[in-house]
Nucleic acid binder design. Structure first.
Length: 473
RNA sequence: GCGCCUCUAGCUCAAUUGGCAGAGCAUCGGACUCUUAAUCCGCAGGUUCUGGGUUCAAGUCCCAGGGGGCGCACCA
């Protein structure tokens, strides 16, 4: 084809999806008399000699291009376009005799050349590696991928709006942390040259957000990219997105209501219902969700009647019976949590709030108001997956210091994920944190739930992969 | 990190027991004025992931390495 200059800008007047909606009822063979300009990628081409049909796809959908030799300038160049080329087209909106809404090409310009040939126009890409590495191609040829990411965008947008309507303030806190905190996880490390300072990528924004409540922002939230130096799986990516929010004067029961209402709202807005299926199983998200304590569920699903004063030998025996590995420094709380995770959690489908965790395994949660040794904490299990973690926040600086100290002991005992003392956070608590409810939701998993996909990589545009070998040559 | 599976043309896939590496789409050349994955004719396209080994002969069998997937473990 002849040399064509690619313009520096272009002005489409319409999108394919809108035109399809507007002219759905146009009769076969009719013309609208309306001239439009559309732009997008040429996905299909049907060359008839003196007549060429193309299928143009833009951000909203597809529309046919109808080019005739006698009315389309540089017709032979048009018919020589490659699949995958970007074009801008001006012409009248018509419906062909065979009933396909089309733009009759009166002017056109190539907006980009596809120098690499597009994947098979029927089969697309089936190799997941290629789909994740070359998402820019995947989004064109895999409609479900497109839909999933549009859904993700809606989830984020609706969540923001919903929280803002409830007077939550969106904030941004540091990604670089001098002390990793707010969760039990192994951090990534990095280094700032000018300060000659080792820094950690955040594993959670929690401690900074609670500082803001101390600072008087009564309701704050952050949609935070967090980083954990752990394994990859269908449910784990080293960087993922967590919604954390803190609400002054609230406790964990308020947060349960907030979670179930938010998730039900998102399902209703996006899917039009709170009754959905996930991975082939029914899931009813309508409120209220069941609440049950960890102890109740251990009894219900595993027949284990345990408490913090159960003799250690008995707890250890139960662990051995259920093939739970036991370490010497595990206290009763840790043993009970391990038993729960091994025997009970896998049986939960939900939605359900599992409430009241052992204090021993919850260094940032407030003591239960009438269950000594337990804390006011819950996890939401939805579709068999842990969706969120929340608690009445620990507000007492003395008690918080004790919890940090216990974590230091864990660290000394070899737990790489244990927390370290954050003196500035303790100083903030010294200034007074009011009663506060806090929440963390894994947004990637929430999107997976609503998109009915079982792989986290299907909801992350560019998931973490090994760098490709031999690409630069 | 461990176990199982997988890797063939740009894409989707074949190749019998170990016996000449093939097709469709895309690309390239040609025909065609209402197609819908258009159709038809023709050309070209390969380090069968890499490196070893067994064999007269390896895409196929064996060993090592690499990429990917799934499961386990850690975790959200």
């Amino acid at each position: 084809m002849s040399e064509q200059t690619i313009p520096h800008r272009f002005d489409p007047t319409d999108h394919a999806g809108d035109l399809q909606k507007t002219y759905a009822d146009l009769a076969d063979g009719e013309s609208t008399g309306l001239e439009v300009t559309v732009a997008g990628r040429l996905m299909l081409k049907r060359d008839q000699g003196r007549l060429v049909f193309g299928t143009l796809q833009d951000a909203t959908g597809r529309i046919q291009l109808f080019a005739q030799e006698k009315t389309t300038p540089e017709f032979s160049d048009f018919s020589a376009l490659h699949l995958g080329d970007w074009v801008g087209v001006t012409g009248e909106v018509i419906k062909t005799r065979r009933g396909e809404l089309s733009v009759r090409v009166a002017q056109w310009v190539r907006l980009a050349e596809a120098r690499r040939s597009f994947p098979d126009k029927w089969h697309g890409i089936s190799d997941t590696d290629t789909r994740y590495r070359q998402r820019y191609v995947d989004l064109w040829v895999t409609e479900e991928a497109r839909q999933t990411f549009l859904l993700r965008s809606k989830v984020m947008s609706l969540t923001r709006r919903w929280l803002e309507e409830k007077d939550f303030l969106e904030v941004e806190t540091p990604v670089f942390h001098p002390i990793p905190g707010g969760a039990l996880a192994r951090p990534f490390t990095t280094h700032h040259n000018a300060l000659d300072l080792d820094l950690y990528l955040r594993i959670a924004p929690e401690l900074y957000l609670k500082r803001l409540v101390v600072g008087g922002f009564e309701r704050v939230f952050e949609i935070a990219r967090v980083f954990r130096n752990e394994g990859l799986s269908t449910r784990h990516n080293p960087e993922f997105t967590m919604l954390e929010l803190y609400q002054a004067y609230a406790d964990y029961t308020d947060i349960m209501v907030l979670v179930e209402e938010l998730v039900a709202h998102l399902a209703q807005e996006i899917l039009g219902t709170t009754s959905l299926t996930y991975d082939g199983q029914d899931l009813d998200l309508s409120v209220p969700w069941r609440r049950a304590t960890m102890r109740e569920l251990l009894l219900e699903h595993a027949g284990l009647d345990v408490d913090l004063d159960t003799p250690r030998e008995e707890l250890v025996a139960m662990c051995e019976q259920h093939e739970v590995p036991v370490k010497d420094h595990y206290g009763p709380g840790k043993l009970i949590l391990e038993l729960y995770e091994k025997t009970t959690e896998p049986k939960l489908w939900g939605p359900i709030f599992v409430t009241d965790y052992p204090q021993e395994v919850s260094p940032l949660s407030r003591d239960h108001r009438d269950q000594p040794g337990w804390v006011e904490r819950f996890e939401g299990i939805v579709a068999g997956r842990e969706l969120c973690n929340a608690f009445s926040e620990l507000v007492d600086p003395e008690e918080q210091r004790n919890r940090f100290s216990a974590q230091e002991s864990e660290k000394a005992a070899g737990d790489a994920e244990a927390m370290v003392v954050d003196e500035d956070y303790l100083r903030a608590l010294d200034y007074g944190l009011p009663p506060t409810g806090g929440l963390g939701i894994g947004m990637d998993r929430l999107v997976m739930l609503l998109a009915d996909t079982t792989a986290i990589r299907d909801v992350i545009l560019f998931p973490t992969l090994r760098p490709e070998q031999g690409l630069a040559d």
